[in-house]
Amino acid sequence: DFYKILGVPRSASIKDIKKAYRKLALQLHPDRNPDDPQAQEKFQDLGAAYEVLSDSEKRKQYD
Rank of each mutant, 00 (worst) to 15 (best):
S13H: 09
S11I: 04
K15I: 13
G7C: 05
N33G: 03
A48Q: 13
R59M: 01
K4W: 03
E41V: 10
K60D: 12
G7E: 09
K19L: 11
G47N: 08
A25F: 07
A12G: 04
A48C: 07
K23H: 11
E57D: 10
K15R: 14
I17F: 00
F43W: 12
D31P: 05
S56I: 14
D55I: 04
S56F: 12
Q38G: 14
Q44L: 10
L28M: 05
K23W: 06
G7K: 08
H29M: 08
H29C: 04
D45L: 13
R32G: 09
R10T: 14
K23Q: 05
K23E: 12
G7W: 00
E41Q: 10
G7F: 00
F2L: 13
D31C: 08
A39R: 08
Y3W: 02
A20M: 07
A12W: 01
S11D: 15
A20D: 01
Y62S: 02
K19A: 14
Q61P: 01
D35K: 14
Y50C: 03
E41C: 12
K42D: 15
L26Q: 10
Q44Y: 07
L53D: 01
K15D: 10
F2D: 00
A48S: 12
F43H: 12
D36L: 06
H29V: 05
E41I: 14
R10N: 13
F43M: 08
E57P: 04
L28F: 11
R32V: 14
F2W: 14
Y3Q: 02
L6V: 04
V52R: 04
A20T: 05
L24W: 06
I5D: 03
A48D: 05
S11T: 09
Y21R: 04
N33T: 05
K19T: 12
K18N: 08
D63V: 09
K58Y: 05
P30W: 00
D35W: 07
K19R: 15
L24Q: 11
I17K: 01
K60S: 15
K42Y: 02
F2M: 07
P9Q: 12
P30S: 05
L6T: 01
K60W: 08
E41N: 10
Q38F: 13
S11H: 04
L46V: 12
D31V: 07
I5C: 08
A49V: 04
Y62N: 01
E51V: 07
H29Y: 06
L26N: 15
P30Q: 05
F2I: 04
D36W: 05
K19P: 01
Q38A: 13
K42M: 10
Q61T: 08
S54G: 07
K42F: 05
L53V: 03
G47E: 12
V52C: 09
K58D: 01
K18W: 03
E41P: 05
Y62Q: 01
I5P: 01
L6Y: 00
K42A: 12
G47C: 15
Q61M: 15
G47V: 12
I17V: 09
S56E: 14
A49N: 00
D36N: 15
S54T: 04
K15Q: 13
D31I: 08
H29S: 12
A20Q: 12
E41T: 12
E57A: 11
L53P: 01
Y21W: 06
N33M: 05
K15E: 15
S56R: 13
K4I: 03
N33A: 07
E57M: 08
K15L: 13
L24D: 04
Y3G: 03
R32T: 10
N33Q: 06
V8Y: 00
L46E: 00
D16G: 06
H29K: 09
K23C: 13
I17N: 01
D36K: 05
P9G: 14
N33F: 15
E41Y: 07
D55K: 07
L24C: 09
K18C: 08
P9Y: 03
Y3V: 00
Y3C: 11
G7S: 06
P30A: 06
L6N: 01
Y50P: 00
I17Y: 00
Y21K: 04
E51L: 08
L53T: 00
V8P: 01
V8H: 00
L24F: 06
D1V: 02
L26W: 12
K58I: 03
P34N: 13
F2T: 03
R59T: 02
S11K: 11
A49I: 06
N33E: 03
D31G: 12
R10M: 10
Y62V: 02
S13T: 14
K60T: 14
I14L: 11
E51G: 09
A39M: 05
K4Q: 08
L26H: 07
S11E: 15
Q61Y: 13
D1P: 00
F2S: 04
R59F: 03
S11F: 05
L46N: 01
R22M: 15
F43I: 07
G47W: 08
L6I: 07
I5F: 06
D31L: 09
E57Q: 10
S13W: 00
S13Y: 01
K15F: 10
K15Y: 12
Q38W: 09
K60G: 15
I17P: 01
F2H: 15
Q61H: 12
D45V: 12
F43D: 02
D45R: 13
R10L: 08
F2R: 02
P34G: 13
K19G: 15
E57N: 05
P37W: 06
P37S: 11
G7H: 13
L26Y: 12
K42N: 12
L53K: 00
P34Y: 10
A48V: 13
P37M: 09
R10G: 06
K23P: 04
K23F: 09
G7D: 08
F2E: 03
I17W: 00
D63G: 04
G47H: 05
E51H: 09
G47S: 13
I14T: 14
Y50K: 03
K18E: 15
V8K: 03
D55R: 05
F2K: 04
Y50S: 00
R22Y: 10
A39L: 06
I14V: 12
Y62A: 02
D31S: 10
K18P: 00
L46F: 03
S13E: 12
K4S: 11
